[in-house]
Design a binder for these strands. Sequence first.
DNA 1: ATGTCGAATAGGATTCGA
Length: 259
Amino acid sequence: MKIATFNINGIKARIDALPAWLREAAPDVALLQEIKTVDEGFPRGLFEDMGYNVETHGQKGFNGVAILSKLPLEDVTRGLPGDDDDEQARWIEATVVGTRAIRICGLYLPNGNPVPGPKFDYKLAWMERLAQRAQALLDAEETALMAGDYNVIPQAEDARNPDAWRDDALFRPESRAAFRRVLNLGFTEAFRARTRGPGHYSFWDYQAGAWEKNNGIRIDHFLLTPQCADLLLDCQIDSAVRGGDKPSDHVPVWLELDA
DNA sequence: ATGTCGAATAGGATTCGA
């Protein structure tokens, strides 16, 4: 089973590029972030015609996540547990029913800039709730993964110019520590389970010719429970997508599971 | 010197978020 995560930076703006990538990459499941629309504004028919089941958790103007799946989706839930007052659409999960059931969580973790400030506080609080949900998945011994735009650069090698990110919420020690706390509960970071070393990025800013200079960062991640990690066959970044027509500032990251 | 993009509001340029 091929599962991808892709921050599309607006479904309206990616109305051609997203279907083109889906046709080429043919993932069984695609977790989308920053759909930037309410549920009613998502062009679900376009993807249903391509053979995908569509589940969205949208919001006006910003944020918003979705799951596209060629396999049936069951037990869909929306919103990260732990704060009933949180109105931001950043979390969706569902069970993909193939040869076995896999619990799939799609997430768009808060950016957190500027630091310090309420947005950074919200990011760290959100990551604490993420840790709670992550622990619950482990406790249930679920074959599960959590994937999406984590807005965290895990290590210096995950940035072309780490010094430029020192004071940024994506690379602050607090953000990296919170990410490690989740990892250290017992998750496998799929990309790093397969590939070592610098030079692997999933985001290049639109500004200042970042793509042309390969001034990127790796912030889109897959975290797998042990039961899911047992099934991992491959994990890759589709960097070439960044050089396509009307690209998102992120590119797809995908993995293949023996399931 | 953010060498930018996307969405909302408003009906074009500005603001916010990233």
